[in-house]
C-alpha cells in the first residue's frame, strides 16, 4: 500500500468500519479471537490456536476465521478466546487448553451449545463512556 492522502485514509476507515459492522450483523462467518499477549502465550495460547486450526480442518468448516488480539484483562484464566457465531451471543471463554478448544468447535460452533464452566463474561464491555 502506498502512502495515503487524507481522503484515502478516510475512505479506508469507512470501508473497514463497514466491513467490521458487516461481519457482526450480516454475520456470514464465525470468528474465533485468541488473546495472544505475553501472558496468553505463556499460558498456552499457541497450543489452543493449533488445536482450533486442527479441529476446524478436521470438520472441514470453511467459514471460520481465527485471529489474535491482545490482553482481555482476564489474566487469571488465560488462555482466553472470544467466539462469535451468528445467531449466538458473543462469548468469552477462559482456561482454553487444547481439549477445550476442540470442544468449542464441536459444541459451540457446530452444535450451537455453550461450553460449560469456561465462560467468562467480559469484565468491561466495549464502553468508552460517552
Amino acid at each position: 500500500m502506498a502512502k495515503m492522502t487524507l481522503e484515502e485514509l478516510r475512505k479506508l476507515r469507512e470501508n473497514k468500519k463497514i466491513e467490521l459492522d458487516k461481519r457482526d450483523t450480516e454475520g456470514k462467518s464465525i470468528h474465533i479471537i485468541i488473546g495472544m499477549g505475553t501472558c496468553g502465550i505463556a499460558a498456552g495460547a499457541k497450543e489452543s490456536l493449533d488445536a482450533f486450526l486442527e479441529e476446524i480442518d478436521k470438520h472441514n468448516i470453511d467459514n471460520v476465521t481465527v485471529k489474535q488480539t491482545g490482553c482481555m484483562g482476564l489474566c487469571y484464566v488465560e488462555p482466553t478466546v472470544e467466539v462469535k457465531v451468528p445467531g449466538m451471543p458473543d462469548t468469552i471463554y477462559g482456561n482454553v487448553d487444547g481439549a477445550t478448544a476442540r470442544e468449542i468447535i464441536t459444541e459451540h460452533v457446530l452444535a450451537g451449545k455453550l461450553v460449560d464452566k469456561h465462560i467468562f463474561d467480559r469484565p468491561a464491555k466495549d464502553i468508552v463512556k460517552e
Binding site: 485514509l9 491482545g70 482481555m72 472470544e82 467480559r122 468491561a124 464502553i127
Partner: peptide, 25 residues
C-alpha cells in the same frame, strides 16, 4: 453494570494489534 471504564485499554482484546486497518476502523 460495569465498574470498569476502558479508555487506555479500549482496543486491547478487541483488535488484532498487528493490523493497522483494525486500529483505523
Amino acid at each position: 453494570y460495569q465498574k470498569q471504564v476502558r479508555i487506555v485499554l479500549r482496543n486491547c482484546g478487541f483488535i488484532d494489534p498487528e493490523k493497522i486497518d483494525e486500529y483505523i476502523a
